[in-house]
Write a protein that binds this DNA or RNA. Structure first.
Lengths: 179, 179
DNA sequence: GACGACATGTAATGGGTTACATGATTCC
DNA sequence: GGAATCATGTAACCCATTACATGTCGTC
C-alpha cells in the first residue's frame, strides 16, 4: 500500500469541507487550522497533482468564458475510502515542537537575563494576541449553522486556547522567577 | 554574516553545558530537552564539522592508547561570542506544531466518533506518561547542585509540565463533548 | 558469546519553505 | 493607475530522518 504524508491527507481531507481549490485549502488552513497545522503552495499543488494521478481526487478545469483559472477538485470513491481509513489509523506522532524561546532560555546565563526576559515577554505578547484571535474566530464560528465542521472547529479551537493560555501563564511565572 | 540554523546553535550551545561529544549532545537533548527540542546524529556530526571549519569550536582527538574514539569539542572565543549574540537575537518563530490528532479530529465525522475518542485517549495517555517523566526529571534535577543549568532546566521543565497538563485537560473535555 | 550501551560517521531520501513567474479581478 | 486579493504553478534549496557501516567496552 502506497503511503502518503500527513500533509497530503490534509489536502485530501480539506476537500471534504467547503474547499474546492488549492487556494481555498491554503486560506482555510491559514485561518482556521493555523493553531495546529500549516502548509505552503509548494506542498499543496504537487499534492493535488499526485492525488489526481492516483485517482483519489478528480480535477475539474474551468470551461466556458471565465477568465480566472480556478481549478476545482472533488474526491473520488477511492479518495473517500482512503481518507476514512487514514482517519482511523492510530496516530504515531505526538512529538513536541521545536521551541526557540525555550532553547535560548536553557542556554542563556544570568548576564543575559534582561534580553531573555524581553524574549519571553514577546512570546507572551504573541500568545496573548493569538488568544484574542481565537476569541474572534470562536465568535464567528458560533454564528455559523451547526455542522460537523463547526463542531470540530470549536473543539480544535479550544485546544489552541488552552495552549496559549498555558503559555501566557508560563511566561508570567518564568519572568517572575527570573527577576 | 553567515547564518546558521537553530539546530547548529543548539549544538554549539550544548557544548557549554557538561556535554563534550556528539554523543553527549544527543543524550542530553533526548533526556533533558526532549519536551521542546529534538535532534539526530545526521544533524549533530555535520554541524560539529561545520562549526570546526568556521573556527567556532575546536576538535580534540583522543591521544594515547585509549581505544574508544571519543572526540571532544570546546568552544573558541569566536564561538562563545557568536552564541551569546544569537541568544540575544529576537526570536521569530513561535509557530505551532503540526498535530495529527487535531487534524484527524477536525476531518472526522460522527460515524467515526468511536475511533476518534480512542485516538484522543491514546493522546491523553502519552501526555500523562510525559507528565510522570517530568516529575522524575524534576526530582533528579532538584538533587543536583544549584547551577545555571539546573535553574534553566527547571524552568523549561515547567513549560513541558504546563503543556502536558493542558493537553490532558483538553483531552478529557473533548472526549466528554464527543460522547 | 551475546547483548546493550558507548561512540562516530555518511548517503539516500523525504519533507517543506522560499523565491520566482504569471496573470485576472476588484476597489480606491 | 496602483494596490490588494484571487489564483496556479515550479525550481532551488534547506532541513531532518532513516538506514547503514563500523568498532569498543562491560557484564550477564
Amino acid at each position: 500500500m502506497k503511503r502518503y504524508s500527513a500533509t497530503t491527507y490534509a489536502v485530501l481531507g480539506l476537500l471534504t469541507t467547503h474547499c474546492r481549490t488549492g487556494y481555498d485549502i491554503k486560506r482555510m488552513i491559514d485561518t482556521s487550522l493555523s493553531h495546529f497545522w500549516k502548509i505552503s503552495y509548494g506542498q499543496i499543488y504537487p499534492s493535488l497533482k499526485l492525488l489526481v494521478e492516483d485517482g483519489l481526487i478528480e480535477r475539474h478545469d474551468q470551461t466556458g468564458s471565465t477568465k480566472v483559472e480556478r481549478v476545482e477538485y472533488t474526491l473520488t470513491n477511492e479518495g473517500q475510502k482512503l481518507l476514512k481509513q487514514w482517519l482511523q489509523e492510530p496516530v504515531e506522532k505526538f512529538s513536541n515542537e521545536k521551541n526557540e524561546v525555550l532553547l535560548r532560555l536553557f542556554l542563556s546565563d544570568e548576564e543575559q537575563t534582561t534580553t531573555t526576559i524581553q524574549q519571553i515577554e514577546k512570546y507572551r505578547a504573541v500568545q496573548y494576541e493569538k488568544l484574542e484571535t481565537y476569541e474572534l474566530i470562536e465568535h464567528s464560528l458560533r454564528t455559523e449553522p451547526v455542522t460537523i465542521h463547526r463542531k470540530r472547529g470549536l473543539l480544535t479551537l479550544d485546544f489552541g486556547k488552552k495552549m496559549s493560555r498555558a503559555i501566557v501563564e508560563w511566561c508570567d511565572e518564568t519572568i517572575a522567577q527570573l527577576r
